[in-house]
Design a protein around this nucleic acid. Structure first.
Lengths: 229, 229
DNA sequence: CGAATAGTGTCTGTTAGACATTATCGA
DNA sequence: TCGATAATGTCTAACAGACACTATTCG
């Protein structure tokens, strides 16, 4: 299985799908059904198909759909990983995307799908461990100053729920008053008229949703969601 | 020259080298000496060579060195561009890196090398126009909160020089006092003992250099170099 | 009514930016 | 001495975060 001169470069895509499960950030892994690393848990990935895919993003979207049935509302290019050693089949290039989905999209996991907390991952095949670390770092960095974590929420959510999501992602508490001020500044949320979260033994919370124009665009602030001195 | 089924994916790297010339941000372009687009100005780029390159970053570094003789002190992966139409030779994947160098490194341009201001670029072949726009956007975004622009400075520089570089990159004036406070907070600069910029008809400015530990690492602040309300 | 959490008003310490002042060179 | 710019001190307005207070539901 070693590379010989003249072998073509292996061209693949991989997807790091992140979601929140029980307040902890989890990554979607699949049990590999073929070599190399058959039986091991790894990121969903596959070959780019030039006859089928319009670009690498389309390939990533297709691979995710074929292997998990999921269509992610958010898919961003993370980075490209390459080299002779990361895949035992030979010199490879993998364009990696990261996806964010609300946990409600993962109620019925397809067979072979696992959600593992990123805080305590087993050793992963290929360079998938490093890839997941980079994806989590990117999510944390962007969450400091953007609305990215909204994609981890269901369509309708309350501000306390959204704040809990930010806190789970960033791993630190956020000041309630500042958080609400920032969300207000970002201007991407709208209250759903008359809709309140009911059934809890306290004052009901207003339900919000993303304004349509922010459905597929991020909103940024200058100084961070949780600015510190 | 059209793609046929079964053709391998074309795997290349391109480099966006940015520098400051006369206070304006410029990109390095080369006159292409072969088809496609022979004679046109384009980003330095070339095929990944699996037998030679340890990864795509090494390929980018090699391509830049072979085509311009330059070794950039800063080389960061920008993004990967792919699809059937961006290269007339067929379905291609290009891993793009961006480099920052001080203008002093570009005194004697090799033949065929051009430095053009990014503000008024001609139409570029492939998708190189879009690639340059993304590189400039990345530089501007990172300059808001990091020490990235110091790579555009020579080894020894004064704080007013560095501020002028930030202002040229960001395209807006910066408050002098705030700028110096931020540079102090970043803690990445050290005054060169006893070295002052001489020969100007005013009080001489202290010369600074990057602390060794920041030679190849960025320094970040929470709230931005030029935080605004 | 009490427990619990949502949502808001207010105060305070910190920070960024404006402005003024001093310092140090060449001409 | 003057012009020019470096470098720094000080004041103020804006902002983040702490705290307290009110609002509204269920049991």
């Amino acid at each position: 299985m070693r590379r010989r001169e003249g072998d073509p470069i292996i061209c693949t895509v991989d997807v790091v799908l992140l979601t929140l499960r029980d307040d902890s950030l989890c990554v979607l892994l699949l049990k590999r059904d073929r070599e190399p690393f058959a039986g091991a848990l790894a990121l969903p990935g596959g070959y780019v198909r030039p006859d089928e895919d319009q670009d690498a993003a389309a390939a990533a979207s297709r691979v995710l759909r074929e292997k998990t049935g999921l269509v992610s509302p958010y898919l961003e290019q993370l980075a490209t990983f390459s080299g002779p050693a990361r895949d035992p089949r030979g010199w490879s290039v993998s364009v990696v995307y990261f996806a964010l989905v609300p946990s409600s999209m993962l109620q019925a996991d397809p067979p072979g799908v696992e959600l593992l907390p990123v805080a305590r991952l087993p050793r992963l095949p290929f360079d998938h461990g490093e890839i997941v670390r980079e994806a989590v770092a990117r999510l944390r960095a962007k969450s400091q100053y953007s609305s990215l974590p909204v994609y981890l929420c269901p369509e309708r959510f309350t501000l306390p729920q959204l704040q809990a999501v930010y806190e789970a992602v960033l791993g630190e508490p956020i000041n309630k008053v500042s958080f609400r001020r920032k969300m207000d500044e970002l201007g991407m949320l709208e209250p759903i008229p008359g809709e309140l979260e009911v059934g809890r033994a306290h004052r009901p919370a207003q339900l919000y949703r993303l304004r349509p124009e922010y459905r597929h665009a991020l909103s940024m602030v200058d100084r961070g969601i949780n600015a510190r001195g």
